[in-house]
Amino acid sequence: MIANIPYIAAAALIIIGLYTIIFRKNLIKMLIGITIIESGVNLFLITLGYRKGGIAPIFTGAPAESTMMFPVPQALTLTSIVIGVAVLALMLSFIVHMYRHTKSLDVRKFGGDDQ
């Protein structure tokens, strides 16, 4: 059971993130929702590669006969984090522009032409 806690946490983070996105009206808060989802997914990825009692997968200086963490999920997570930062920056810059134009951060103000 205790080994499942990271998975439960990941699922909880994703659901919390979705809740934030759907029910919060502030653009910044929705953005935070996205980052929460992202953290959940990253946590999930990292957990997949976890080995009990394992050490960091760096060959130099690793004691013989020791268990290492699986490096691929960590590489994936790292990539995903980098992409996440890029997306976050882009979205924030969009929000800055939108705020400059309308002086508002309410998502309902940006309804487009679909009215």
């Binding site: 996105i21 653009l27 929705m30 996205i34 989802i37 997306v87 882009l90 979205m91 969009f94 929000i95 522009h97 939108m98 134009h101 309308t102 940006f110 487009g112 032409d113």
Partner: peptide
């Protein structure tokens, strides 16, 4: 144009999720 930025925001939002 605010509408263009807004459309870009919507797109990246949806795509990211």
């Amino acid at each position: 144009r605010v509408k263009a930025v807004e459309a870009g925001f919507k797109y990246i939002f949806i795509s990211t999720i």
